[in-house]
Design a binder for these strands. Structure first.
Lengths: 338, 338
DNA sequence: TTGTACGCGTTATCAA
DNA sequence: TTGATAACGCGTACAA
């Protein structure tokens, strides 16, 4: 592997001169400098990242930690992050799984963005205490080295509930996420708040898991006890889709006997029939904002926690209780600002 | 940041003793060793990755390079890679975009898996020449430091074409990928081979781009010239879905006037109505095999190029030309081994 | 057990 | 001014 030493030898100068030349310092004559650059190019010199990182105590790499690599949410989110990172001279790497956590304390990366509920908050807190910079997208944490960029779950869940209630629903099933999920807890809290405010609305909570299977199981439960028009608010789209799938095998029609609304407005939701009503937000913006915040706290700029706003997307999966004998027409998607 | 030096000071030993103790060498007394370990834990010592990488000349990190972070193909593919990497003591990071290429020559990663047609082969060849280890999933390259793990595109395209022909189709549109795409070229070659063999089959090539919009444009073209039963083989599912979407706005029904088959069998394909026929393969296996091969060539073991086998998945989107007045029944998905 | 050279690049200090 | 010397960052591993 060719190092600055080789270049120095070839150019007949010292390694420091080479380093200065390569970094565009004005401590070297243009003449020597261009000679050195030429030799570097000729030898295909590439600096060693480990050496640079070791000395400069920064890698110019940011890491994002995800629960897994699948998931429809991630595409735009990551593009947004990457765009900001690259514009600011950082590279972005995507990691998943406990093994990769070491990247942060070992200083392979200059900071981390967390969207992985399996990454323990205690662990994050330790890292923050040791000076590592972190942005969390999936929990609340207060620490000078941690910044939050959270979805406005409360607004989203409220929008969804109000939409169902406006359509005339009096009985609403709510399918939750897994126990530890911050998003689930937040959304559920808002659901309860809205429901408690409306005296004539009954709501039933069903424990889910944010996965398709959870929605399917919820469907089974609902079909068994069905006794009249009802709506289901699945706290994420994946469960909503599982639920719709399963309902398709039953006598209950989505957007007819049962209305369904989700949360996240993932790509797939546009393709289910009828179109799934959901809560939308800009995943790209979420990602770019997270990256911006991380870069700021790395630079030592103090920043406040941020929030990502949400909108309601209507769909044929919600059309009011028992449309009696009228034909159910597919609506166009309309985004309603909150 | 606490380093071995701090531990050495606290323990009253030399840094080399600390290093040996931390690495479980038997060159240190159990007594001193456990004492050192205790102090290390107490001080929250974490080794510095840059220093270790610099000295050992390996990072134990593999990188996978993708064109973008979206794409339904990637979930299982990456899980497969990660599983193998972790089992073998490696970490996996996911990168995208030209900026991140530097990770390889700068030796931040020990090897790379490429699934990104925008990553120039010449560039890869240079890296290979300089000793970097690479596995390519999207092109053919011959070099001792490069291994191929490719889809069996020929088999897949042949299966798809034969399926359409078996159903009685005589007129087949083929929507291709973008110019430079290896997969597109390979699949198209197989298409031609099959079509040329069948004297009474007419085939028409339409240039696409492997994106939804390409399928939509192809649909427009086909609708304009439609003059009787025909089938469309989209060289990937994304285009097939775009095409189906657009056809839904026309008078031509998918699985009725027009049969459609795709390639990749992405998650979404299960949700379009009628279910999209496609060519399936194990993305997880593809990923795990790629990782295995990369780790092998890093270890200096010589390996042969590998191939991922494919199967046909039938769907309601293909049901034979003009089903006349009979009702088209949704078929179950059946996987047919090739 | 320990001293020390080494991996590679950066940068402060000092000499020509 | 221009450029060389050397310390440094941190961990590894050989020689003593």
């Amino acid at each position: 592997m060719v190092s600055i030493k080789d270049i120095a030898k070839q150019a007949g100068v010292s390694i420091s001169t080479v380093s200065y030349a390569l970094n565009g310092s004005n401590k070297v004559t243009d003449e020597t400098s261009s000679k050195i650059l030429a030799i570097a190019k000729e030898l295909n010199y590439v600096p060693n990242a480990a050496a640079r990182t070791l000395k400069k105590r920064e890698s110019k790499i940011l890491g994002v930690f995800l629960t897994d690599f699948s998931g429809d949410v991630y595409g735009d989110l990551l593009s947004g992050m990457k765009a900001v990172c690259n514009a600011q001279g950082y590279d972005l790497i995507v990691c998943s799984g406990k093994q990769s956590h070491r990247m942060l304390p070992e200083r392979m990366i200059d900071g981390a963005i967390i969207l992985d509920h399996t990454f323990a908050s205690e662990e994050l807190m330790q890292y923050a205490d040791r000076g590592h910079k972190i942005v969390v997208l999936d929990r609340e944490m207060d620490h000078p080295n941690i910044n939050q960029v959270l979805l406005d779950n409360k607004a989203g869940a409220t929008l969804a509930m109000e939409h169902l209630i406006e359509q005339g629903h009096k009985k609403i099933y709510v399918v939750t996420g897994p126990e530890g999920s911050f998003d689930s807890v937040q959304r559920l809290k808002a659901v309860r708040q809205v429901a408690e405010r409306e005296a004539d609305v009954e709501w039933i909570e069903i424990t889910g898991d944010f996965e398709k299977s959870g929605g399917e199981q919820a469907a089974d439960q609902i079909v068994q006890v069905y006794d009249g028009p009802a709506a289901v608010f699945c706290l994420n789209d994946e469960m909503a889709i599982g639920l719709c799938d399963r309902l398709a095998d039953s006598a209950l029609g989505v957007g007819q006997e049962i209305d369904v609304i989700g949360f996240d407005n993932i790509e797939l939701s546009k393709y289910v029939q009828p179109r799934l009503a959901s809560i939308d937000y800009s995943k790209r913006k979420w990602g770019s904002l997270a990256a911006e915040q991380l870069i700021k706290i790395i630079a030592g700029e103090p920043v406040d926690h941020e929030r990502i706003y949400v909108t309601l997307v209507e769909g044929g999966s919600v059309s009011g209780p028992i449309p009696s004998d009228s034909v159910i027409s597919m609506r166009n998607d309309r985004a309603v600002s909150y």
